[in-house]
């Protein structure tokens, strides 16, 4: 997936001259201050909104609109309350006109993989926030996209649930060999889940740093959390994001 020199606008210039690419099977985290246009990038990548200049490419094809290569997942689970969990997971597959049996098969496979098989017939309101987010992940994976765009997927769940969701996500991405662009506010999450971290500046956003994470075991963020190199990466990110500087110095 490539973003060669994309600029996006929504009444204002949200991002400018952003250019990067994500290799097949790579997980790249994108981090930056609020309103730096991270979500704009995601919208351009998923084809929901057109960029004002520049383009996004997925699998060598220019993104002209929503397409089957890309699927996204947001902070909100966006589960449909009138569908059971299995039916929610199958939403995308169903829209893409797969047979009923194929929809059911993919849903049950994914739910089993994410330890949700017992809840297939439940309705969303019967599940906790963390479980619902896991269902949203299953729904994203069900359409078998080559690229996943994840926009702060775990920022609405509690800290402990987040750790286990991160673990699930990392293992699923690794085993399925998916490419992912993870947008997050959480510095630690960016480091432990990705191969590479891109740092964006304030609006109009552009990329100010690129850090390759040299810690092994991307499919095991729980272990990565405890690695001694974490502190160094954190310090560098904080410096790049100008977090250390007192914001309200008199």
């Amino acid at each position: 997936m490539r973003f060669p020199d994309a600029s996006g606008r929504a009444g204002f210039t949200a991002i400018e001259g952003v250019s990067f690419s994500v290799a097949d099977g790579e997980v790249v985290a994108l981090i930056g201050p609020s309103g730096c246009g991270k979500s704009t990038l995601l919208n351009i990548g998923s084809g929901l909104y057109a960029s004002s200049s520049g383009h996004a490419f997925v699998d060598g094809e220019r993104v002209l609109g929503p397409n089957r290569h890309v699927a996204f997942m947001l902070q909100k689970d966006l589960l449909l309350p009138w569908r059971t969990i299995a039916e929610n997971v199958a939403l995308g597959v169903e829209i893409q006109q797969q047979t009923k049996r194929e929809c059911a098969r993919r849903a049950s496979d994914l739910l089993r993989g994410l330890n949700l098989a017992d809840f297939a017939a439940h309705y969303p309101h019967q599940l906790s926030g963390g479980m619902r987010q896991r269902v949203a992940l299953a729904r994203t994976l069900a359409v078998d996209p080559s690229v996943l765009l994840l926009d702060e997927p775990f920022s609405a769940v509690d800290a402990q649930t987040r750790i286990s969701l991160q673990q699930d996500l990392a293992q699923t991405l690794k085993h399925a060999g998916k490419t992912a662009l993870l947008i997050t506010h959480d510095l630690l999450e960016a480091i432990i889940l990705s191969d590479r971290v891109l740092v964006m500046s304030a609006r109009p956003g552009h990329i100010v740093d690129e850090i390759t994470i040299q810690i092994g075991g991307r499919d095991d963020p729980m272990r990565r959390r405890q690695d001694s190199k974490i502190a160094g990466y954190m310090a560098r990110l904080m410096e790049r994001l100008e977090i250390a500087r007192p914001a309200l110095s008199a």
Partner: peptide, 21 residues
């Protein structure tokens, strides 16, 4: 929620599909 509509769109839903689903 516009994000719900965008979710359906990202799955390449047609206008009738967005309405019925």
């Amino acid at each position: 929620d516009p994000d719900l509509i965008n979710l359906a769109r990202s799955f390449t839903a047609s206008r009738p599909q967005i309405f019925w689903k």
